[in-house]
């Protein structure tokens, strides 16, 4: 007997999984940004917030588990799909003009892996194990100090700012195309959808960029 077809076996199922995990990750980056923006409210506020998160205990681990699973699924499926796409056109065109696609859509394959590298860098930097860089010395208790110290190093800020630009593009294409992948799009809302995706992506991008810039500019010390 033949194995029953599962959703995961199909390209449409895989794309739906990309979309769903994308929604989780999108939600996370928004929450992450909102949390971190408290850096502008001073050390007590930010460190208090960090402590509150830590004190959630098992809930935090559940959230981390969901996040980790989403990241893994997002990456694994992305790798599968990209290799499928490469195999689908073994001989390329000498000349190919694209007319409809966007820069963001075309660069998903580049922005994706770079963002993965950035996440590793970001985690190693601020979370585990807390790799020291230049004047930066990781302090698990004092998140505020970590942020200020780290972003005072211009190249570190540079990496963060660059990564946020990538993230902005990635989120933009992801946010508006996930409706199509899940079959939820309707021509009537097309323009609004594109605008909403653009706005959300920009909010996240500029919100996050604001932090290193503020540190470099001496607004946050």
């Amino acid at each position: 007997m033949q194995k029953a077809l599962t959703l995961y076996d199909t390209t449409i199922g895989k794309k739906a999984l990309m979309a769903v995990t994308g929604v989780v990750l999108f939600g996370f980056v928004i929450a992450h940004m909102v949390g971190n923006l408290q850096v502008f409210l001073g050390p007590e506020q930010l460190n208090g917030y960090a402590k509150k998160l830590h004190d959630l205990g098992p809930l935090l681990w559940i959230a981390r588990g969901i996040l980790l699973a989403s990241v893994v699924a997002h990456v694994v499926v992305a790798v599968q799909l990209v290799s499928r796409s490469v195999a689908a056109r073994p001989v390329g065109y000498r000349q190919k003009k694209n007319t409809a696609t966007s820069y963001a859509a075309r660069t998903m394959r580049v922005s994706g892996p770079l963002l993965a590298l950035f996440i590793i860098f970001h985690l190693a930097h601020f979370t585990v194990p807390g790799v020291p860089m230049g004047n930066y010395e990781h302090n698990a208790r004092d998140v505020y100090a970590n942020v200020v110290q780290a972003f005072s190093i211009p190249w570190v800020s540079g990496v963060y700012i660059a990564a946020q630009l990538l993230l902005g593009f990635h989120l933009y294409h992801g946010a508006w195309s996930l409706f199509q992948s899940l079959g939820l799009s309707h021509p009537r809302y097309d323009d609004k959808k594109r605008m909403a995706a653009q706005t959300l992506a920009m909010v996240v991008m500029f919100g996050n960029i604001a932090m290193p810039v503020a540190v470099l500019a001496g607004i946050v010390k």
């Binding site: 076996d9 390209t11 966007s102 859509a105 992948s181």
Partner: peptide, 15 residues
């Protein structure tokens, strides 16, 4: 859809 995948077409990335 199953046959489409089997034929080796790529997936849609909404370009």
């Amino acid at each position: 859809v199953a046959q489409m995948d089997l034929e080796g077409f790529g997936h849609c990335t909404n370009h």
